[in-house]
């Protein structure tokens, strides 16, 4: 099975380092970014399955990053993570298609489970897309075969 590619976005460097180390030990492929702008750069450069996004960050905050990434990279599943969970934020997040909303401090084992679940959803979405694409390819082929008959 392919490695799960995770992008961690948080302004706390130590958080990034420890979480990445743990996730890597659990077999994830981890990228990190210290703010939203850097995260968007990473998204442009490589394939990411799941993004763990902090809400309050300098330069580009979680919600802004969320909006932009949903627009340009709609396939990436996003888990919001914050020390400042407000109901408005949760509602806002869920409306924009966030996979889940987690409150700091979160247990890393729980985070692993959430990321795996998000990856599963990512895969399902991808499979649906591929299936649709295959159908799209098969459909004209079937017609051609009909014609050939």
């Amino acid at each position: 099975m392919d490695q799960v590619k995770v992008l961690l976005v948080d302004d706390e460097e130590r958080f990034l380092k420890t979480t990445a180390r743990f996730l890597e030990k659990k077999g994830f492929c981890v990228q990190t970014a210290v703010n939203g702008a850097k995260a968007l750069d990473v998204l442009k450069l490589m394939l990411i399955h799941v993004m763990v996004l902090d809400v309050q960050m300098p330069i580009l905050d979680g919600f802004e990053t969320l909006k932009i990434s949903k627009k340009h990279h709609p396939s990436v599943e996003i888990i919001m993570l914050t020390g400042h969970a407000t109901v408005e934020a949760a509602v806002e997040g869920l409306k924009t298609g966030v996979f889940d909303y987690l409150m700091k401090p979160v247990d890393l084992d729980d985070l692993v489970l959430k990321i795996s679940a998000a990856h599963l959803k990512y895969q399902q979405t991808q499979q649906k897309k591929e299936l649709a694409q295959i159908k799209n390819i098969i459909k004209p082929m079937k017609e051609i075969m009909k014609d050939m008959k």
Partner: peptide, 24 residues
């Protein structure tokens, strides 16, 4: 409290991470 919670929750997260790593 909102501000306080935010400020406290971040370091708590890191402590938790460190502990998990040590354990691992």
């Amino acid at each position: 409290a909102t501000g306080f919670a935010h400020e406290i929750n971040n370091p708590l997260q890191i402590i938790k991470n460190e502990k998990t790593l040590i354990e691992l």
